[in-house]
């Protein structure tokens, strides 16, 4: 029987978002390789930095406490970068035309990917914290400090995920999206993630001290291990909100511009 029933009322924005979130979560769970990579890579990096480089950087054995916040951000950046590929995949597939010609807010397809990325990354962050505790990470944070640290990490993941979503929207192909995303992942290395910035040449210190990743790392480090916070928390939140707003608006405008073009 091919005939359908009488016309129905279009789906609400809430339903649309939920449907797209569940779609993206399914995609994440079925792409086992990417999921495994998103968890394994940060764990390997942490082991690498703690056991291989750690001794040379700080022979007191305390390096693990220094490096964990950096690894967490690297993990979040890497995990959210796959959003660029997911979004670009959708944009280059015929399915986006179907979504766009339905009476729904079709940008929700991107929201779905963003929420799935957030879920994926928070899970991966949890695993990294678990492994970190096993290899000697000893945070001295209170409950409130933990909550704040997780809030900052969540904001950071959300910001970078929207940024990668925008990159996925403007990239010509999934491969290009992946390439652009990769470039951004160098940012944590040029910050205080792995070594204090005052060990860098002075011209590089200027870059490292004033790029968005450094205050975010200093904030998480301060909250979890009690290093001085100064004003880095404000800078961290400010940077994140600014980038988030730009990435979001950029996504909306490129999503509109891409209509009918694949």
């Amino acid at each position: 029987m091919i005939a359908a029933d009488k016309p129905v009322k279009p789906a609400s924005l809430m339903t649309t978002n939920l449907v797209f979130i569940s779609r993206s979560l399914r995609h994440s769970l079925r792409n086992t390789e990417a999921l495994l990579m998103a968890i394994m890579l940060p764990v390997m990096l942490m082991l690498l930095f703690t056991y291989v480089f750690g001794g040379a950087i700080d022979s007191s054995g305390d390096y693990v406490n220094y490096v964990v916040p950096g690894i967490i951000l690297l993990c979040a950046g890497f995990g959210s970068s796959s959003t660029a590929v997911d979004v670009s995949n959708d944009m280059t597939n015929g399915i986006i035309d179907r979504f766009r010609t339905m009476p729904i807010k079709s940008l929700s397809v991107v929201t779905g990917h963003v929420v799935a990325s957030l879920a994926r990354n928070l899970f991966a962050t949890g695993v990294v914290f678990g492994v970190a505790l096993l290899v000697g990470f000893r945070p001295n944070a209170s409950f409130l400090e933990w909550v704040l640290a997780i809030a900052v990490i969540t904001l950071f993941i959300l910001t970078f995920t929207w940024l990668f979503a925008a990159i996925g929207l403007v990239a010509g192909s999934p491969a290009a999206a992946s390439g652009y995303g990769f470039a951004l992942l160098f940012l944590p290395y040029l910050s205080s993630a792995f070594v204090p910035t005052d060990t860098m040449p002075s011209w590089l210190q200027g870059v490292a001290n004033h790029q968005p990743i450094t205050p975010v790392i200093e904030t998480i480090r301060g909250l979890l291990t009690g290093t001085p916070l100064n004003d880095s928390a404000w800078w961290a939140v400010g940077w994140c909100l600014l980038i988030l707003a730009i990435a979001f608006l950029w996504s909306i405008s490129s999503f509109r511009k891409k209509a009918g073009r694949r």
Binding site: T16, V19, N93, G94, I104
Partner: peptide
């Protein structure tokens, strides 16, 4: 459209149900 507008990661059933929900 000219290129099959289906979600390759999902099953046939999931595709249809997704569009059903999106259609209200």
């Amino acid at each position: 459209g000219q290129f099959a507008a289906v979600d390759e990661v999902l099953s046939a059933e999931e595709n249809l149900r997704m569009i059903g929900r999106l259609s209200g």
